[in-house]
């Protein structure tokens, strides 16, 4: 007798990478909800603190990361189709954009430090450094993972590495508006 199909049979990629993705989304999701919860106690202070952030740089970083995700998706498709060289080039492009994201983020941190703004300056900046720092750590992990899976160019591994990269992308499209844009 045939086994009943599970919804998880349709899951794109390995179940374990999805367990990782959901775990990470829960952590970042809780962080952003806590941020908005604490903001209720001091909306004016949070708005004043937010004015120290580089909205334009963060906007550029959003374009950079979303474009990196697009290149990674094209890379995974190319490897799956057996076009390994093309896939590697797309994944290399995604990695370079990931490094650019980190460079822009480092410049932002440098400017904040030069202005004397640290993790204890205000509750806003405690969340800001924790959430964006943890996210940047994931970007750094991604720019190690992407070249590794690109070098071997095995479809299953590339799919897992690229799924991790999309998770990093997904987290940023939530972090960016909540921390940088909401007034």
């Amino acid at each position: 007798m045939a086994e009943a199909r599970s919804a998880f049979d349709d899951l794109p990629g390995d179940l374990m990478i999805w367990v990782l993705i959901v775990s990470e989304l829960l952590v970042f999701g809780a962080g952003l909800a806590a941020f908005l919860g604490v903001r209720i106690t001091d909306p004016a202070g949070f708005a004043a603190a937010q004015d120290h952030l580089h909205r334009a740089a963060a906007g550029v970083n959003t374009v950079v990361l979303v474009t990196s995700g697009w290149l990674a998706a094209l890379g995974a498709q190319a490897v799956e189709a057996g076009r390994l060289g093309r896939g590697r080039r797309f994944l290399a492009g995604a990695t370079v954009l990931g490094a650019l994201f980190l460079a822009i983020k480092a410049a932002e941190y440098g400017d904040m430090a030069a202005a004397g703004i640290g993790i204890e300056t205000h509750a806003f900046f405690t969340f800001y450094y924790l959430v964006t720092g943890f996210h940047a750590a994931h970007v750094a992990a991604g720019i190690v993972v992407l070249p590794l899976v690109a070098a071997r160019a095995r479809a299953r591994e590339v799919e897992a590495g690229v799924a991790f990269w999309h998770m990093v992308d997904l987290v940023w499209v939530l972090v960016f508006p909540v921390l940088y844009l909401l007034r």
Binding site: D10, V173, P177, V178, L181
Partner: peptide, 23 residues
């Protein structure tokens, strides 16, 4: 702004992470 963030997150899940292949 939050509504747009929700729409972007949905798009990444469905198109980039290919959940549109698993209804």
């Amino acid at each position: 702004i939050l509504t747009l963030a929700w729409a972007k997150a949905r798009m990444i899940l469905n198109a980039y992470l290919r959940l549109d292949e698993a209804p």
